[in-house]
Each structure stands twice: as structure tokens, then as C-alpha cells.
């Protein structure tokens, strides 16, 4: 599904290379956790895949089902099936949450040559997903993320994921700023979306999230490269020993 080969990327304004030859293959139905010390390039990877401006890819490729993601703008990547759950979801005053969700879903459907969803079908979809994520009517009516708590913002990200039904979900430190109850709600939301056709890349600093979203593979990202891969046990090992070893290995 997702194939990343020898990906090099730098921050455009600084010319500083963050990703230095990253390779990763994710197959449908799999959950891959990417862990690593601060500054390893975890968030940069998520941004480069989603197409955030400000990064320059200098070498390598990233494809989703054979489609070259790096040549597409963020909207086209979303229509191709990429979804990034933001570490820091932004507030958008004046744009209602429901309006936004419907506009996004219909834009993706149009881009894929599908018809727009009818309002009753959309409302049914929305009510179901919102209910499972404990998102109130009030939150749906408000402008996107405006006045939401940290936990509400993260739940709203998962709600968008549930509505948009992407092929590839990238979760960028979704656990940051969440207490244990909110973490469980978010994890259940993610687990509810697991399917044989959908893959997840879960970026996290801590092992805690992986107790709730159990990965098939765990990768250690250090100095812009995957330096070690393994099963869920690798996360426990990291939790016990820290990242010190990998920082040195990569250096």
C-alpha cells in the first residue's frame, strides 16, 4: 500500500536535512508504529507524506497503491486516500464542523469521480461516528476545533477519519496531551476503523498508546532513518531502555 524508498527531505527555509534515506513498506490491514527520540524526524515524516508546505524532498519516493504522493497537492493526496491526524489540530473560526466535514467528504468524492453524498446519508454517517467517539451535537455545531479541549480536538480528528474513510491513516503523536480516559476513547475509535483494506502509521514517543492500539510492526526512527524494526515487543524494550542506544547507532 504505502512504499517509501530512500526518502530525503529538508526544511525549505533552513536547508537542514531531517529525513535521510528513510525506507518503509506498509501493507493493507497493517498497523506500523514509528517511535523515536525527539528530533528524529517523526513529525517531518507525517508532514512530508501529507504534503505540508515548507519541506523540500530532495531524493526518494513515496507511493500509495502506486500513486506518486510527492507530486500531488495535499487535497489530491487526501482524495488518493491519505489522512493525517494532526498533533496540533488548528482552530478554524467561522467554519462550522458539520459544513467542513461535508465539504471535505464531497470534495474527495468528486475528486474520485463519485457522486456527492445526500444530506440524510451524511447525517446518518455523522451521527453514528460522533456517537461512538462521544462527540456532542454542540461540538458538531461549533466552528472547527474552536474552544475544544485537547482531548476534544483529538477526538474530532478521529471523527474526520471515520467520515472520510481513508486508505492510509497517519497518526502524529495523537496521544500527546491526552489523559488516560481520552486516550481510550481515541484508541477505540481507531480500532473501530481497522480493516483489511486500511493501514495505519502511528507515530508516538511513548509506548503507552500502543497498549491500546496494538501494532503489527514497530520501527525506531533516529536521525531521519529507520534504524531498527521489530514486533510489539520492541516498543516495550524501548520503554524500558530509552532511546539512548539508537541515538548513538545512528550517529
Amino acid at each position: 500500500m504505502l512504499e517509501i524508498t530512500n526518502l530525503h527531505a529538508e526544511i525549505e527555509s533552513e536547508g537542514r536535512e531531517i529525513l535521510r534515506g528513510l525506507d518503509l513498506v506498509v501493507k493493507p490491514g497493517e498497523i506500523h508504529a514509528i517511535m523515536g527520540p525527539n528530533g528524529a524526524g517523526k513529525s517531518t515524516l507525517s508532514h512530508v507524506l501529507a504534503g505540508k508546505p515548507g519541506y523540500l524532498v530532495t531524493e526518494g519516493t513515496a507511493t500509495l497503491d502506486g500513486v506518486d504522493l510527492l507530486g500531488l497537492d495535499p487535497a489530491a493526496r487526501a482524495a488518493a486516500g491519505v489522512f493525517l491526524a494532526f498533533q496540533y489540530p488548528v482552530e478554524i473560526p467561522g467554519v462550522g464542523n458539520v459544513t467542513f466535514l461535508k465539504a471535505a467528504l464531497n470534495a474527495q468524492r468528486r475528486a474520485r469521480g463519485e457522486g456527492e453524498i445526500s444530506t440524510p446519508d451524511f447525517m446518518r454517517l455523522l451521527r453514528g461516528a460522533a456517537g461512538r467517539l462521544e462527540i456532542s451535537q454542540d461540538m458538531l455545531k461549533r466552528p472547527v476545533n474552536v474552544g475544544f479541549s485537547g482531548g476534544e480536538k483529538k477526538r474530532n480528528e478521529i471523527l474526520q477519519m471515520a467520515i472520510l474513510q481513508p486508505k492510509l491513516c497517519i497518526l502524529d503523536e495523537t496521544d500527546s496531551g491526552l489523559d488516560i480516559d481520552a486516550l481510550k476513547v481515541v484508541a477505540e475509535g481507531v480500532n473501530g476503523l481497522r480493516s483489511p483494506d486500511r493501514a495505519f502509521v502511528v507515530i508516538t514517543h511513548y509506548q503507552r498508546l500502543l497498549d491500546h492500539i496494538v501494532p503489527d510492526f514497530v520501527h525506531v526512527l533516529a536521525k531521519g532513518r529507520i534504524v531498527k524494526s521489530g514486533g510489539p515487543e520492541l516498543a516495550l524494550e524501548l520503554e524500558a531502555k530509552g532511546y539512548a542506544d539508537f541515538a548513538e547507532e545512528a550517529a
Partner: peptide, 15 residues
């Protein structure tokens, strides 16, 4: 705001 533009586009809404 570029951050808002990116957020909306990342959900599939064209520029």
C-alpha cells in the same frame, strides 16, 4: 493563514 489552508486541504478540499 497557511496552517488553516493546509489543514483544510489535508482533508481533501482543493486550494
Amino acid at each position: 493563514d497557511d496552517a488553516l489552508k493546509f489543514y483544510l486541504m489535508s482533508r481533501g478540499i482543493p486550494a
